[in-house]
Nucleic acid binder design. Sequence first.
DNA 1: CGGCGTCATAAGTTTTGTTTATGTGACCTA
DNA 2: TAGGTCACATAAACAAAACTTATGACGCCG
Lengths: 310, 310
Amino acid sequence: MELHQLKCFIAVIEEGGFNRATTRLHITQPALSYQIKQLEDELGASLFHRRPRGISPTEAGRVLFQHAQDVIERVRQARRAIERLSKGVVGEIRIGTVNSVGIYFLPPVLQKIKEKYPLARPTVMYRRGGEVMEALLSSQVDVAVLANPRPDRRLNFETIIEEKVSLVCSKGHPFFGRTSVQPHELRGLPFISLTQETPTGMLVKDYLAKLGVSVDVVVSTPNVDTVRKMVEVGLGVAFLPDMVTSADVSCDGKPIDLISRVEVRPSLTRKIVLVTWKKFQCGQVVQAFLDELRWHGGHWKACVESRPRK
Amino acid sequence: MELHQLKCFIAVIEEGGFNRATTRLHITQPALSYQIKQLEDELGASLFHRRPRGISPTEAGRVLFQHAQDVIERVRQARRAIERLSKGVVGEIRIGTVNSVGIYFLPPVLQKIKEKYPLARPTVMYRRGGEVMEALLSSQVDVAVLANPRPDRRLNFETIIEEKVSLVCSKGHPFFGRTSVQPHELRGLPFISLTQETPTGMLVKDYLAKLGVSVDVVVSTPNVDTVRKMVEVGLGVAFLPDMVTSADVSCDGKPIDLISRVEVRPSLTRKIVLVTWKKFQCGQVVQAFLDELRWHGGHWKACVESRPRK
DNA sequence: CGGCGTCATAAGTTTTGTTTATGTGACCTA
DNA sequence: TAGGTCACATAAACAAAACTTATGACGCCG
């Protein structure tokens, strides 16, 4: 059974005869007879009573007619769905990212996209960096936005933001108010750290190791907001991406101007990187998302620095 | 877009690659590539990301996958529906008939069919004889059961029953108790007649005309039950098919042993005829109905005579 | 009875689909 | 970094459809 056969069949019924159907189908009558015969042979039932004054459908014909119309309609719907995709009116955007980026950077980007493409359907997968990479490689997501991702020959890396990871302390801390501290001053201090599974946690650990500074890790958590809170209450100092300490409010809604950034030399930075497959082909909507992502990335630094923290 | 292309497409997705799909489809890989390319070209969108380690569907591919599965499933359902038809488990029986036959003869036949084929779906169209013929000729019904139908070269006529149309009178009528009356005794009598549109009404009219008897028509109605009732209350005599006066109860549930048949010579008969198209091909269920019809027809006379009315 | 309308059949042609053989590009291993 | 492998693309020859033209069968209708 083939779709063009069903179309032939429908035409014969709707036009009420083989000869009349040929004009609609733009084929000759023997061709049509042949196709209908194919159908009948395959189904093992005749579909039409051949009567002197034209045809009339048998019961099998009537039953098939219902189903055939339905099938053709579904095909039409499939066509339309794909057409709407390529026209960019709808589109899924499957994003993989890590917590900090997902919380502090992505939301405004998605908001912009939603304004421009109301029918866009972004889905965000929050995982640890490695898992997001896996998801990208197995095509569970289309794009990944990661911090300091591990290189991979198959993938394309495009740095969106290069931001500082700064030392932060609470208002009551001895460092408070100082413009900078020396690395050796950190030695042995109570320290709040991101777990090493997070790229930034690892980054900070390597950084301290390279400086030859060992600190007293009093809290270790995978969640940046937890780190921030611990610092707020004065449990220790920490390194946090500027992103986290630049937002007006944290993700739980409380203002976060209770902590202060202090400069340490040499400074520590991390890169927010857009990762896609090499030769990544995508629809209009995803493309628009990428553009939006780049634009926001370019304006990020300015945005952060226009809201300096004491 | 063709069904075999959709099947190819589904296989590629489900098997996770072109090469793997070939084993399921029993075609070679270039053939498969070709078919997928056809689809992609027609839809104007690529359906797969071709990646070094196999493929993954694009968004268009994912969308099409949903729809394609649905389409294939509908086709499968169509196949099954037609299969059930030819296996005789289901089947529509479109019957056209006139009132008297429909009321007094058809019900037990349909009951038997329903017992043997619980999923049979008989639909009965009650019309005047000519209209039923029209319906048969335009294939709105499959079979017609008519009284004395007009011949037609295109159709096949098979007499099922040949029954008497007897003179009937009420219990209080002078004819009551007599075994027979002479035609001339009817002259001028109050008479209930079926309208001439009904085959039996026409039959009776011609019969009386041939006998040279003119009666006093006090009621004319297309409904046999109305005639019966009028006779019951003694408004006049009438000719009614034995069928009508042999049932234990009339269609309104009341017993009808309030009237009596009286013999008139020459006797008047009508034929209940099964009408179908010449070379009528039908499914098992309709065939069973026809057999049942013939069987009941053959046993009708015996049935009627085993319940004689005084 | 002959002309007409409608579908079926036959034979030849064109289009489509398939196979075999080979190419391309990226990964993997040494 | 050369060579093998995997997975899909491409090319050309071939096979199988679908289509067209021409003709036939059958019943209607004047």
